[in-house]
Design a protein around this nucleic acid. Structure first.
Lengths: 123, 123
DNA sequence: CTTGCCTCTGACGTCAACGTCAGGTTTTAG
DNA sequence: CTAAAACCTGACGTTGACGTCAGAGGCAAG
């Protein structure tokens, strides 16, 4: 498929796909005229890239670990990096959870004030 | 306390603290000569700011909700925004969890390959 | 009083992950 | 064949949360 279709099917922009290629995250065949052609697997690949980006994994790390994802092999060193990334994600989840809870108590606190005390209306 | 001490006690840079003030996230008294003076509560406040930043809450939203955190009151509109932020954080946590799991399966897959099949060593 | 560290206000630099525009080629629909 | 739509390669713009540097003042110690 061409880049436009891949963009449509993954929900990421054409520009982003070209950017991924620049960063060696996503390869493409080229047609005789130079247009990018992608196989079906590219859809999955792009979604994985997005997932890792969303997890805050820097693109350099993604570039390093993607081959491993594809062929299922990793050097011990890479395995360590993967575990490290996983740990980073875990602590990030904890941060988020605690932030979420803090927001939650702010909310219920505000609601409680709202019921019992004066409301937020002027006066 | 002065800005250097607050920075040391919160672990954020002096520049960041001045930036927070610029964004109306953190107020300060000024000495006669213009230096910033902070009360004890500033330490907590800065940590809250960090937590929200870490959760991806944009600084404008933080500025809006901080007064509410302080005085425990919120307009219905603000309550809605808080809930929206909470929901955003929740979906972010889900993203991260799924990324984490995906990394996990990559890792265990690699380990399995490592045990059963050929290792990653050349040859 | 001076030395040395802390602080001040601008103001420009940075980095990632793209957005956007320019100027040109290719593919497709009619 | 032609016009529209999609694609190409640069290359500069954007945003957020600061980093960093310049130049000038403030403050406690000796």
């Amino acid at each position: 498929m061409r880049i436009g279709e891949l963009a449509a099917r993954t929900g990421v922009s054409v520009r982003a796909l070209r950017y991924y290629e620049e960063q060696d995250l996503l390869a493409s065949q080229r047609s005789a005229s130079g247009q990018r052609r992608y196989a079906e697997g590219a859809v999955d690949r792009v979604q994985l890239i997005q997932q890792l980006y969303a997890a805050g994994v820097p693109s350099r790390s993604i570039a390093d670990l993607l081959p491993c994802v594809v062929n299922g092999r990793a050097t011990p060193e890479l395995l360590e990096r993967l575990s490290a990334e996983q740990a980073r994600i875990d602590s990030r989840i904890e941060e988020l959870t605690s932030a979420r809870d803090r927001l939650g108590s702010v909310i219920s606190n505000a609601i409680a004030n709202w019921r019992t005390g004066r409301s937020c209306r002027p006066g």
